[in-house]
Write a protein that binds this DNA or RNA. Structure first.
Lengths: 208, 208, 208, 208
DNA sequence: GATGAATGAGAATTCATTCAT
DNA sequence: CATGAATGAATTCTCATTCAT
């Protein structure tokens, strides 16, 4: 899973080192910026030597990719849990709210990390990595839409999933980074739920 | 207009140089990336010397800011035209469609530029520049919502404007950069119109 | 006399331009620093174009050299006046005081200029220009010492002239630049007079 | 001691690198000039890469400051040794001679370095560093004057110390840089001793 | 003559990566 | 394995000088 790792850490000490490196990088991205995440700074914060970075990661970007992996897995896990079979009998509006809640919590834990992931998604040469993640999330959303029993207003589920994914991500991230006053997270989730359900189901259903 | 210009170009040759620098930078941002826009590369593409960059721009970022300015003004002009008095009697759905069309056209002219502007908006230390632009666009949207005659479903217009702005921007940009197959721009505009009108007005009105 | 001048200014307008350039440079050296005296800045302050600088001076340093010339001539003029025949009958202490007074006045008119001239004198490859000036001043001092009628305590007049020149220059300049509190210029002159006459004549004579 | 060092060199190899950098810089200052001491040139002469300069010094000037420190400490050590308790019973003329001898030796070891230090003292924005050194040397001289048992001719010891410091420094440095023929260092010291003692004590005492 | 736009060599500094210890 | 000193390509920016208008 850790694609670019130079060597799989097997010993406890090695695992701890890898964990420290990823934690340090996440912290720097969260509190500072992508530019601040130099190898020197990561090594400092992690409390290891620069050499150790290259023991486990072939190049600097591999560290970021490993972090992406971790965050991608967490995000997908949250969505899979919400969209899982257990929720198929609930009202769509509740599933949507649950998904948004889960995402909001995830984002708020490391907004800087998601900020960087979004920026990566804006690169011209977007990595396969990032592309595959987008694909998987959109597939999950599309699948969710397809399993809604109520009549849908939207017909092109692929397009709808794409739009919903982009809208939710951008809005949540902007909210977290800018913290516009007078708009707390619960209210944001309520509004986004409204946005999505109105779009997908039409107002009657979303009201009911 | 060129806020950070070191010197206002007076002679024709000078104006041409400034134009070449901005054009070159826009092209690099469009086709490559923000990182690729080094002073060396910009000068090369513009066909001028590095020194000439600094005749008219105090530092590298000032070139980007000048480009931002240009794009900000264009964007605001489009929106002001659409939201202007002439449209107050039209159905909201038409105004929304017109605005989205205008934006889509603008974005498609220089997607890379808007990509960079979006990235700038994701920086920890977002510049006053970028912030002010976001503010003005959201104000325009809010004002538009406030002048709709039909009964609104949303109550917090500030929140609604914020969500709409972020959603439209992210979706349009992602569409332009990824070009998801099977989703042409007209369809995208139709879907986004649906998204917005359903959210703001409820389905009955948006259908009508 | 203006050694490096590219062309002798003959027309009134041209003379005025040269004057403006030298004045501007002197002002910048006085108020700012040697580094601040860029061709761009000199042209700005002088109110001429950069091109005009090169109309009259072959290269930037030629401007500084012309300034040196001017200052060197002034300095030598002051000393020649004091050490001239008229003063041969006065007491040495009075001549020394008069010379110091003249120099103090000259230095205070443009301390920054003399600062730069001193720095030039500290360059490894001191220009012939600067060297020749040092030589001439020391010759003047030596000649003055040789014409004193009272018995001298010093025997090596060349050495004495060298020491006196360096001491006076450094002390006066440091005084002007640092303005040590509690030491006004009259007091400084009195002290330096004491320093020199005691050294050259011994205390009995310097007291008388 | 190395105030601006970025990192304290611990390993032998590192110490050797720092030493090489300082040695190279001193050599360039001695044989060439302050302007010649570019980072590229220092690295070349030191036989290290430019990057290594920045391992140990935060910026170019920090290298010069480290050199200054080294020289300041040496200079003060020489003067403290001479003006120390052991010399209080000796004749002032001997203490002055000893001090001048010590300084002459120090200056002759690295004239270029002292040249640069003097130039730094002539900068408009003289660094606190340099200023503090001047202050300390003048304080030492003043204290020495105050402890002389013989009756002094000078009354303002602060002014006298200032004048003596500037005169000795400038004269010794000029002597070293210009090497005026017919004036060897012993003779220079004798003359400067004469200059100082005559000034401070009057000729009778300085003769005895 | 006068102008000032254009030039480009050269300066300081950063940072991912390597490798001897 | 771990370390961190060393590397040097690449970046931004300055400024004396030239030359077309």
């Amino acid at each position: 899973m850790v694609v670019h790792a130079r060597k799989q850490p097997r010993q406890p000490r090695a695992k701890e080192t890898v964990r420290a490196i990823l934690e340090a990088t996440a912290q720097i991205l969260d509190r500072e910026s992508l530019d601040a995440a130099t190898t020197k700074r990561i090594a400092e914060v992690a409390g290891v030597s620069i050499g150790s970075l290259y023991q486990y990661f072939s190049h600097r970007d591999a560290i970021l990719e490993a972090l992406q992996d971790r965050e991608f897995e967490r995000t997908l896990a949250v969505m899979q849990a919400v969209f899982g079979d257990g929720h198929i009998d609930k009202a769509p509006i509740e599933t949507v709210t649950a998904a948004l809640r889960g995402l909001a919590q995830l984002y708020s834990q490391s907004p800087g990390l998601h900020r960087v992931l979004t920026i990566e998604g804006l690169r011209v040469a977007k990595s396969e990595h990032v592309h595959a993640f987008d694909r998987r999330v959109i597939d999950l959303v599309r699948h969710f839409l397809a399993t809604i029993r109520a009549p849908l207003r939207v017909t092109d589920l692929e397009a709808a999933a794409f739009i919903i994914y982009q809208s939710v991500r951008a809005t949540m991230l902007a909210h977290l980074l800018e913290r516009p006053h007078g708009l707390d997270v619960d209210r944001l989730i309520a509004e986004l739920t409204q946005l999505i359900t109105s779009y997908v189901l039409g107002s009657a259903e979303s009201r009911g």
